[in-house]
Design a binder for these strands. Structure first.
Lengths: 343, 343
DNA sequence: CTCATCGTTGTTCACGTTCACAAGGGTGAG
DNA sequence: CTCACCCTTGTGAACGTGAACAACGATGAG
């Protein structure tokens, strides 16, 4: 009888193509054809295979496929400060678009600012054999490191100025900054400050450029921008510093968080926004409409950015093609801006 | 001589173990041993192999390794609303901890509330052959779906109540809610409303439970909580509705965003926070300290949560072990709460 | 001197899939 | 009737790695 050496214990391994093939009475290759829906399979055969797959709860083994095709079907994202709204929204959009195209996504976070951290992050992505790379929230240092590594990969950078050799895709930061600045000038402000982002960030640089361009175009005097770090905390600190001088009637902050901190400092000084000082932000994070006062800001369409990003990357993977790399931002006027009262 | 049939054109394929082995004059198995630092390798041999790896810029092929070991070394994260601060911070912490342990991370987003979306998301993770699953921002529906699928995987759920059969790990939501509620009561408030999160969310339910527990413990009358959707937009809407009645002096909002919207609505009604109405939030997002007024809220230590989560999951993968699944939250008192004026 | 043992290295196979090619049966034209 | 061709399916090899086992030389004990 040899009573059941392994009656049910024949488990542990997941069913493979061969198991499906055996059950369906075909060869493993036929199963493969069904999966990759190749032409020239008899309908009845195909159905029998599908039924067997269903019955066994079969799942293709991604590793085996990657091994033989030497394609990982994975996209890597290199990101910094992903708890911020912009990067988070971009990542989500990229993931969704990539998934829809049958690609998986891996992310690697950069901490701090040492270049070893950057190299390690890229290394982890390469270990995953990514087929394409998206760089979010790029800093000069990241680009330099990337250039030094001479990767043989399609790379798309988000939120850059679009002036680099790599393919890039971005909301037009310069135009956004000009919109914000022009809005303040049209309201009658003559002395406008800019609270910029960290110097290393391409995004911050572009916004600063946009600010200066517009100020110059309108023959306005400019002062050196204040360099911040994107946080509300810094905005608050910067506000307190700036208010010591108080020779301005408006501030254009390089993002919404810093604008929030600024408004906090201004209120602490018993001044009014926008009565005494107008504030403009950048990003239009979901909370911005409910700040006090509701923040005038520049809206970036992050989901659209993510979608196009994947289209560009995958298009670049399969074949070169045209693309429109610039997305126009929109100015959203809310309560934090108004004409200067005193003058 | 057979002079070099393909002198330089031998490209395209990445170098494999065999290439390294040939260069070092050893067998591929020796290379394998060096990589997995097995014992009993002569130092000189090891060094020669390392040099060859360096020279060829060799990277182990993860797919091949996964195929033969049938271990993907990948952790899956099932998340919803990841543009919010809490989930985003948790994901980042989990990734970092997982990477440090040599694991990769894949995420899948749930959109909307249809269970097909949940199934698809889990399916994508299973396609990646994940070895463990982290569920962030869990909703009842997700758990039901998960239970129905009977996965043979270690699962850790974040931010749940800890009452489920699965291993879970969370900041103690009930205690956090009680802290917030007690704070309001101690200030002298007698009529307190709760603006809760979406009904389906376990997290929202726990906060509501904490609120009701504390109110009952102190013999306070309670009214039915208002059910929201986590957004500032909804907080604003809810605020306008609640102000029609205005039979309360304080509101405990289930997260900071909704608290922000509430404060916006209160200001629009020409009322003062905290003079007329005190507001408490939950999460302590980085911006909360700069809201107007700065928000009293309950702080959750998301990074710590992520770290412990991975420790638990990986501990669970390798061997069962003890764990401390509850992290205590902290009440952060700021300007949005004070004693009731009128009474 | 011989044999067992240990440290070090090599050989062979298996993992689950796709690719290249072959084989078999049916159909139509000459 | 025969041959060429197409449609459908099967066979065998290969991808890069790790596991099991074998082999080799050196060392030490008897």
């Amino acid at each position: 009888m040899t009573d059941e050496p392994e009656p049910v214990a024949k488990k542990s391994r997941a069913p493979s193509m061969h198991d499906v093939a055996r059950l369906a009475g075909v060869s493993h290759q036929t199963v493969s054809r069904v999966i990759n829906d190749a032409p020239n399979i008899r309908d009845e055969t195909k159905q029998r295979v599908l039924d067997s797959m269903e019955q066994l709860q079969y799942r293709p083994n991604r590793a085996a496929r990657a091994l033989v095709t030497s394609r990982s079907r994975t996209i890597g994202i290199l990101s910094a400060s992903r708890t911020n709204y912009g990067p988070a929204a971009s990542i989500q959009a990229i993931e969704d678009a990539a998934n829809a195209a049958g690609y998986a996504v891996t992310t690697a976070n950069i901490h701090g600012f040492e270049s070893t951290s950057i190299v390690r992050a890229i290394d982890r992505l390469l270990d995953q054999a990514i087929e394409g790379l998206v760089v979010i929230a790029p800093q000069r240092r990241v680009f330099d490191t990337l250039a030094g590594m001479a990767l043989r990969l399609p790379i798309v950078t988000l939120q850059s100025t679009g002036t680099d050799g790599d393919r890039s895709l971005s909301v037009d930061q310069i135009m956004g900054a000009r919109l914000a600045t022009r809005h303040l000038i049209e309201l009658g402000h003559r002395s406008i400050y800019h609270l910029a982002g960290p110097q290393d960030w391409i995004e911050a640089e572009a916004r600063m450029t946009g600010f200066l361009d517009e100020m110059n175009a309108q023959d306005m005097p400019t002062t050196a921008p204040f360099l911040g770090d994107w946080t509300a905390e810094f905005g608050y600190f910067a506000g307190r510093e700036l208010l010591r001088v108080r020779d301005f009637t408006a501030i254009f902050a390089a993002n919404d968080q810093m604008a929030l901190g600024l408004m906090h400092a201004i209120r602490d000084a018993r001044l009014d926004v926008p009565g005494d000082i107008s504030i403009v932000g950048f990003d239009d994070i979901p909370d911005a409409a409910h700040f006090w006062p509701p923040l005038t800001t520049v809206r970036q369409d992050f989901p659209e950015l993510g979608r196009r990003c994947v289209a560009l990357l995958l298009g670049g993977l399969d074949a070169g093609e045209q693309y429109d790399g610039i997305i126009a931002p929109t100015l959203v006027v809310r309560g934090s801006t108004g004409p200067p009262l005193s003058r």
